[in-house]
Simulated assay, not measured.
Amino acid sequence: MDTRLIEHILKIAEEKSITKAAEKLYLTQSALNQQLLHLEHELGTTLFNRSKTNWGPTKAGEIYLEGAREMLRVKQQTYSRISDLTNGYKGTIRVGMTPVRGPDMFIHVYPAFHKEYPNIEVIPYEMNVFQMQKLVSIGDLDLGFMTLFESQRDDNEYQNLYREEILIAAPESWDFGDQVIRKEGCRQALPLQALKDRPMILLRKKTTMRPILDKLFRTRKVVPQILFDTANPATILEMVRAEICCGIIAESTVCGFDQGIRYYSLDKPLHWNVAASYAKGSFVSRATQCFIDYAKKYWLEKTKEK
Rank of each mutant, 00 (worst) to 15 (best):
T45C: 09
H114I: 09
R204T: 13
D178L: 08
L43S: 01
I12M: 04
E66Q: 13
A276P: 04
V100A: 10
A13I: 01
P269V: 03
R262D: 10
Q76T: 14
K196P: 03
P224L: 06
T58P: 01
I138C: 14
T207V: 06
E14L: 08
K304S: 09
L143R: 04
D84W: 11
Q131G: 11
R101F: 13
E150K: 15
Y263C: 00
D2H: 07
A295I: 02
R94Y: 08
G91V: 06
Q131D: 14
R73C: 05
V100R: 11
E184G: 07
P233K: 04
P233V: 06
Y294L: 15
I6D: 02
I181W: 14
D154I: 12
I212F: 10
I9F: 01
I168V: 09
R94S: 13
L161Q: 05
P199M: 00
F228N: 07
L10T: 04
E66S: 13
I93E: 03
S137I: 07
A169I: 02
K134Y: 12
T19R: 12
I6A: 04
Q152K: 11
Q193V: 04
D214P: 05
K280M: 14
Y294V: 01
W272R: 14
A242G: 02
D155R: 15
A295H: 01
M127A: 07
T3M: 11
N87P: 00
Y64A: 03
S151D: 15
I292S: 04
E116D: 12
I166P: 07
M200T: 03
T53S: 13
G256V: 01
N128W: 14
L270A: 06
F106L: 09
K134M: 13
H114N: 12
P118C: 06
R73E: 08
L216D: 07
E14K: 10
F217R: 07
E42P: 01
D267V: 00
I212Y: 13
K134E: 14
L37V: 13
K183Y: 10
E23F: 09
S277M: 03
E62D: 07
G185C: 09
V222I: 11
I63D: 08
L270N: 08
F106K: 02
I244F: 10
A170H: 00
A22D: 03
T207E: 07
L202R: 10
P211A: 02
L32D: 04
L39H: 01
F257G: 04
N119P: 06
A22K: 01
Y298A: 02
F106C: 09
P233W: 09
M97V: 03
Q179N: 05
I82M: 09
R69S: 06
V254N: 10
K59A: 12
E40D: 05
R69N: 08
Y294Q: 05
